[in-house]
Design a protein around this nucleic acid. Structure first.
Length: 424
RNA sequence: AGAGAGGUGGCAGAGUGGUCGAAUGCGACGGAUUCGAAAUCCGUUAUACCUGCAAGGGUAUCGGGGGUUCGAAUCCCCCCCUCUCUGCCA
């Protein structure tokens, strides 16, 4: 959620920024925020002074009652009636205005950072760098959805049988590879200074609002209506919400956490060739890194996080590229997002395996996540997160890129984690 | 799931209708003392919003919401959560 003070003090810049995100009703909505905010303050002032007067009368009545001066007390009581009505009216209207204000604020996306490229769709994303060499495959190279059958390591039909489409069953070396990757990613994160966490994968409504999945994107999440809990679409949700309603002591900053969790996405719609095999699933595994920093450090931190993710891809010897997402393609809550994509040799396309974002104060504002800045004032922190990494497409690329006549040769870094060096 | 108890400031814990944002203790911070420290003493120590250039002033908040009252942490209603016992169970 954007801060009203930012919209008020930097209105023109905010409008430019919203335009970059292709937010259509920016002008009207920002104006609505400013109007509602002004009305809110006016009402607050009126309400407070009426309340102050009522409090003063109550004090006087108390004194008179104690002194046994009943008649005079009654006289004052009569005067409180109109005041009471007034404050009630103010309070009602104030609540209404505040609700209206919040509704508009919830609609407004985060303001993109100045380095975010202009653009409407994925084609307009900026390729920051491309690293590694695309492998040359044999003419009869197979896409991963054939390879998993050939080596009997992932079974989609079985998943359909027990759950549904998009819930694969990992078998044999496929299951062990999953476990190996999770351990590898967690170990790397821990070595890089992140604290390992194991959060619940069901979260309550308040957490959904805190990181911005609610109110708008409830369709993305699986929902247990009986207990009103949501299956997490990413561990960003529980890990960031750990700090909801907190004022973090400066010496604890920056906060750096990592977690492995399964992730659940309903992903209504969009089926087709691009989503075959492991390319898009309802349930998948992911190791996430989350940082919470003081505002002045957050962009350096984002670069550092991208660096960590790149180091993973390098160790896995996967060719990859780093994209800076354009205004039209980046997420609602993000101020700057880097996507990392690996080259999937048999599919001949790039697959997104990680997304690292700086949310600045957008999430923190909802979360009421603050620290005490110099001078003792509380101030919103910046939140960041990134996948390090999401497993399915990594697996897809590993299988496709490393296929040989007699099996799939895994990168060396995984050998000890897997307990084998090749599949098949 | 059934029965009972309870939710108060960073923590512990008083407070059952009137100047209570809340005693007291602990912790933390500042100062005095000390060569330094411990101990001791003095002081400070919640958050949000409104107003003000500022100093300051005001309002709200004692799990959440509603109600009674001139006045609610305190009384009434609803909801949520936690703990204990019983049941079930990895």
């Amino acid at each position: 959620m954007l801060q009203v003070s930012v919209l008020r003090e930097h209105t023109a810049e905010a409008l430019v920024a919203l335009a970059k995100k292709h937010y259509k009703t920016a002008e009207a909505d920002v104006q609505a925020v400013l109007d509602l905010d002004q009305r809110r303050r006016q009402l607050q002032t009126e309400h407070d002074s009426a309340q102050a007067e009522a409090n003063e009368l109550a004090r006087q009545i108390g004194g008179l009652m104690k002194a046994g001066n009943k008649a005079e007390a009654e006289e004052l009581k009569a005067r409180t009636a109109t005041l009471k009505q007034q404050t009630k009216q103010h309070a009602d209207e104030l609540a209404q205005v505040e609700q209206g204000l919040q509704q508009v604020l919830w609609k407004l996306p985060n303001l993109p950072h100045s380095s975010v490229p202009e653009g409407r769709s994925a084609q307009d994303n900026e390729v920051v760098r491309e690293v590694g060499n695309k492998p040359a495959l044999l003419a009869d190279a197979l896409p991963h959805w054939e390879l998993i059958k050939k080596y009997d390591i992932i079974d989609f039909e079985l998943g359909v049988k027990i759950t549904g489409a998009g819930f694969p069953v990992y078998k044999n070396q496929g299951a062990r590879l999953q476990r190996a990757l999770i351990n590898f990613f967690l170990d790397e994160a821990r070595t890089a200074g992140y604290t390992e966490m194991q959060p619940p994968i069901l979260v309550n409504e308040a957490s959904g609002y805190g990181t911005g999945q609610l109110p708008d994107k409830e369709g993305q999440m699986y929902h247990d209506a009986q207990d009103n809990l949501y299956l997490i679409p990413t561990s960003e949700v529980p890990i960031t919400n750990l700090y909801r309603d907190e004022i973090i002591p400066t010496e604890k900053l920056p906060i750096r956490n990592t977690a492995y969790t399964p992730c659940f996405r309903r992903e209504a719609g969009s089926w087709g060739a691009d989503v075959r095999g492991l390319n898009r699933l309802h349930q998948f595994d992911k190791v996430e890194i989350v940082q919470i920093t003081e505002p002045e450090h957050s962009y350096a931190t984002l670069e550092q996080m991208v660096g960590h993710i790149e180091s993973l891809l390098q160790k896995l010897q996967l060719p990859y590229r780093v994209l800076r997402l354009c205004g039209g393609d980046m997420g609602f809550t993000s101020a700057l997002t880097y996507d990392l994509e690996v080259w999937s040799a048999a599919q001949q396309r790039w697959l997104e395996v990680s997304s690292a974002s700086n949310f600045e104060t957008y999430q923190a504002n909802r979360l009421k996540l603050r620290y005490r800045a110099e001078g003792g004032k509380t101030q919103l922190l910046h939140t960041l997160n990134g996948s390090a990494l999401a497993l399915p497409r990594i697996v897809a690329a590993l299988l496709e890129n490393n296929q040989t006549a007699d099996g799939i040769a895994l990168p060396e870094v995984l050998h000890s984690y897997c307990g084998f060096s090749k599949i098949g």
